[in-house]
Write a protein that binds this DNA or RNA. Structure first.
Lengths: 215, 215
DNA sequence: GCCTTGATGATACAGCCGTACCAACAACGT
DNA sequence: ACGTTGTTGGTACGGCTGTATCATCAAGGC
């Protein structure tokens, strides 16, 4: 059997082309022909690897989630060797903010998928409860560890704060995306709440008023 | 001139038909014919009142924002005669949560518009910075008043908390929409943060652990 | 060496989309 | 009373969509 190209690799290439087009023109406007052109292949090839558009979209979503997970892990690693819980949480939260092109793509396309999943039953199947739930429990676990190390202020409800931080990160991300807020001011807001949650082993007075000014 | 029907009223009817279809099938799947059928009029009529689809979408967005504003005001009014700042803020924040059909529609369609506005320049023009900015400054103003009445804990950054609460409300709303979280647990999270911000003139121990359990 | 099988490409086909055009009706001013 | 004008409906037209069909080429097993 002549297998000249790696099947999985080709699928990945096409999925990334899909994400590029979706980031540029919006997920709703993505057509099979656009994806093929962006990937530099023929329309037939896209159909060959993904028989139907629905399967292509599904794989694109999975690929997006996979890529984001890698990015988040890389961000945490970049926070230093064996970073503390706070640094890890900060890395996770800011990785989700649309600051550069890749994270903008992630946030925009992922939100598009989320919106789609509300009305399209095919998308609603799995990923939109699994992924955020995993992020939530991971964050809660980090906070729990931090609390056991006495890094967390007493009386803090770690599960509730995990939910709050993720919801804030998502909400702030969207407002960055639509141009209402700057990435810096969003990061300041998140930092402020981390300051509130964690014991003050950080420079005092990080309450600079960059929020009201930031766009 | 035979003006048998009120022009503005007809436009409103059609816009509401648009919102109903968008809530049911998703904004991306809305066509002129669907809107016409939903409104019980002919396709030509929709074209007559809104020459182009883009104008229809624009008006639909404006109408949605208008309806939400009315709803929020009604909610605040329902909070009692001359409600305190905290009750008003709570009413505002929970009005934005997708709890019933109307608020689900609002949240879904508004988010769809927001996502669209990132890639479509026509939508990006006005409303997506104006409306949230207005909500933000209104919320900040309420907090400022509350602080002057000594209802707010000392050391609270009201602008920052206004931003945080709105971002949380938006993020929680989305997670409700996709079925990750229950409206009750989202309301509990918001309440918790209001407890944190305001002085404790409320029943103590509202920290029931409904968050981890709620779906 | 041939033929099966994987891989790629060009083209065709319904179906839907937004928009435009044309026809008809009803009502007010004169 | 008439015709102008606001108002409504039926229908047609390109263009684009996802999908299916047909054709071609390359490569490895027998």
């Amino acid at each position: 059997m002549p297998k000249r190209v790696d099947h999985a690799e080709r699928r990945t290439e096409i999925a990334e082309a899909l994400l590029r087009v979706a980031a540029r023109r919006g997920l709703h406007a993505v057509g099979m022909r656009d994806v093929a052109a962006e990937a530099g292949v023929s329309l037939r090839l896209v159909q060959y690897y993904f028989e139907t558009k629905e399967k292509l979209l599904l794989y694109g979503l999975e690929h997006l989630a996979r890529r984001f997970e890698e990015r988040a892990i890389a961000r945490v690693r970049a926070a230093g060797h064996r970073p503390g819980p706070r640094a890890m949480i900060e890395a996770m939260l800011t990785a989700a903010l649309p600051t550069d092109e890749e994270s903008r793509t992630f946030h925009l396309v992922y939100t598009s998928y989320a919106v789609l999943s509300v009305t399209d039953r095919a998308l609603a199947a799995q990923p939109f409860i699994k992924n955020p739930d995993a992020a939530e429990s991971a964050l809660a676990e980090l906070l729990r560890q931090a609390r056991e190390s006495d890094l967390v202020q007493p009386g803090v409800d770690v599960e509730l704060e995990a939910v709050s931080l993720l919801a804030m990160s998502a909400g702030l991300g969207t407002s960055i995306l639509v141009g209402q807020r700057s990435p810096e001011s969003a990061a300041t807001v998140l930092d402020h709440h981390l300051d509130r949650i964690f014991q003050g082993d950080r420079l005092p007075d990080s309450s600079t008023n960059a929020v009201a000014e930031g766009r």
